[in-house]
Design a binder for these strands. Sequence first.
DNA 1: CTTGACCTTCCCATGATGGCAAGCTTCATC
DNA 2: GATGAAGCTTGCCATCATGGGAAGGTCAAG
Lengths: 136, 136
Amino acid sequence: MRGVYNIGQASHLSGVTAKMIRHYEAIGLLPEAKRTESGYRQYSNEDVHTLRFVKTSRDLGFSLQEIQQLLSLWFNKRRASRDVHRLVEKHVDELNQKIMDLERMRDSLKKLAQCCHGDERPECPILDQLAEGEST
Amino acid sequence: MRGVYNIGQASHLSGVTAKMIRHYEAIGLLPEAKRTESGYRQYSNEDVHTLRFVKTSRDLGFSLQEIQQLLSLWFNKRRASRDVHRLVEKHVDELNQKIMDLERMRDSLKKLAQCCHGDERPECPILDQLAEGEST
DNA sequence: CTTGACCTTCCCATGATGGCAAGCTTCATC
DNA sequence: GATGAAGCTTGCCATCATGGGAAGGTCAAG
């Protein structure tokens, strides 16, 4: 409302913890916030907007390094949308790679689990397979 | 062959880096290795077998903490296979959760990317959406 | 003027891994 | 036997994103 917020309010409005806001500032992802005379950080509506941008990007799995690039593209009114698009495509590829890795693990484990009685008996094909070194 | 290996040989045979073998020992995942008079670690075929167990488990996405449990089940001849089975099921559930999270991110990003021209023009619905805070 | 909620900085921890440096050992080759 | 390379030792630091906590300053309401 007033357009000037303490870090706690900025945190509530953006969904980024105060801890992380300070951290982002410390590593240079965000510019240094203005301070009151007593040293409290002050955030404008625009600053909160930026924080929400960061939050959304994190929720989509971008690294802070990538978010730094996204932010500078966002701020640069003369950007080429191609650059943004390329960044996103690269991230999608990485996500797909991770998904496939995890699916491979899951499928292997499911196969293993199917062979195991899962009762009070000690015989366990899961352990046998782990010991054999067959991760497929 | 001889059945006694230096850490480098154990590393080659197991696929676990020497660095990690030392680390696993330091955190108590593996027992302290025997040493030669000059302090070199010595590994038996059995030790290498254990290392391969750890490697396979890591490749399947188990945390070191979970691997510790798996190892103690492996060593305990009176285990109930149920305990192993439960551990694996839990891990499969976690993998499924991660997969769904990543798929959600990927699908959101794909949608966003489709709306973006990806050329030299600055207009970019991707950035707009990131700024709006719509991670869906 | 006290109290409680908020803010500040600083240090440490996570989990799994890698890198590097200084120094010692082992072994093959000259 | 000396030398050099390869391999071993420990120890410290870095990554990535985040959280926890302590010690101390500030602000507003009662």
